[in-house]
């Protein structure tokens, strides 16, 4: 059963805000420019982003790797799939991980980690809840896994970040519960700046018509380096509630 609105009525609350501001319920006289973008404008902005990113890709890829390393990622630049698989396998071996969770994403069709890990005795399994195990069992298995692997929906050169959009096949927990997270980044995932990211997400949100009718999904995770805290004497410790170690596998080509 869902809980309905139990605060004070919206109209009453907004009226008190208006009263404090001394204004009427007119929209802003000077409309806010970004919110005037229609679908055509957003489409064009997104296309501009894509064009620029394509043009600057080698630079952006280099910048991503450098920045990510500064922000605490272990960056593995891999010329191809074989190299990437080798990296993942040797990582799992080093960690002694026998259970490796992964998402169900397109990237694993071209980067077959399951088979590669099986070769060294590590069980790589898709953390999806619609299997026979049920939700609680999957969570328990996640908590016991030594490593979680996901793709990247985007990777941001400006900040050295990986963006994942949890959805069907991509649990919110794969990248946060196991102590080590590996993100596989393909060239087509790379963007330049935060502005690039939000331009693309805005288009996604507005794509299906008038404002609010689109959907860009329930969650966006912007990940930059390991989990960390400095809450005791401003001393940095990694791996508090999230992964202590994160690896960015940068595929130069798929």
């Amino acid at each position: 059963m869902s809980t309905g609105n139990i605060g004070i009525p919206t109209a009453e609350f907004l009226a008190s805000v208006r009263e404090a501001l001394g204004r009427t319920d007119e929209p802003p006289a000077d409309p806010y420019a970004p919110l005037q973008d229609d679908l055509a404008a957003l489409t064009e902005q997104a296309a501009t982003v894509r064009e620029r990113v394509a043009r600057e890709l080698p630079d952006l890829s280099r910048q991503l790797g450098e920045t990510a390393a500064l922000r605490g990622w272990n960056v593995a630049r891999c010329g191809g799939v074989e190299e990437a698989l080798d990296y993942v396998v040797s990582l799992a071996t080093q960690l002694g991980a026998t259970s490796v969770a992964r998402s169900e994403q397109e990237v694993f069709e071209s980067v077959p980690v399951d088979a590669a890990l099986a070769g060294v005795g590590a069980m790589c399994w898709p953390a999806v809840y619609d299997g026979p195990e049920g939700r609680e069992a999957v969570r328990r298995r996640l908590a016991e896994s030594g490593m979680g692997i996901t793709g990247a929906d985007y990777a941001i050169a400006e900040t050295g970040s990986v963006v994942v959009l949890p959805r069907q096949g991509l649990s919110r927990l794969v990248s946060v519960v196991p102590p080590v997270h590996v993100a596989i980044v393909r060239p087509q995932d790379i963007l330049g700046t935060l502005d690039d990211l939000f331009a693309l997400r805005r288009l996604e949100f507005h794509r299906d018509g008038a404002q609010g009718n689109g959907d860009m999904g329930s969650y966006l995770n912007f990940i930059t380096g390991p989990s960390r805290t400095a809450d005791i004497e401003q001393t940095i410790v990694v791996g508090v509630h999230g992964p202590r170690e994160v690896h960015m596998v940068l595929l130069d080509e798929e």
């Binding site: 991509l170 329930s218 969650y219 912007f222």
Partner: peptide, 26 residues
């Protein structure tokens, strides 16, 4: 904190969608 970016930024838009793997129902 002088950090260039924090480890995480999470953006929540409503509860989980019907076909999402997980996330809150409300």
């Amino acid at each position: 904190t002088g950090q260039r970016i924090t480890s995480y930024m999470s953006m929540v838009t409503g509860p989980r969608r019907a076909d999402d793997e997980d996330g809150p129902e409300e």
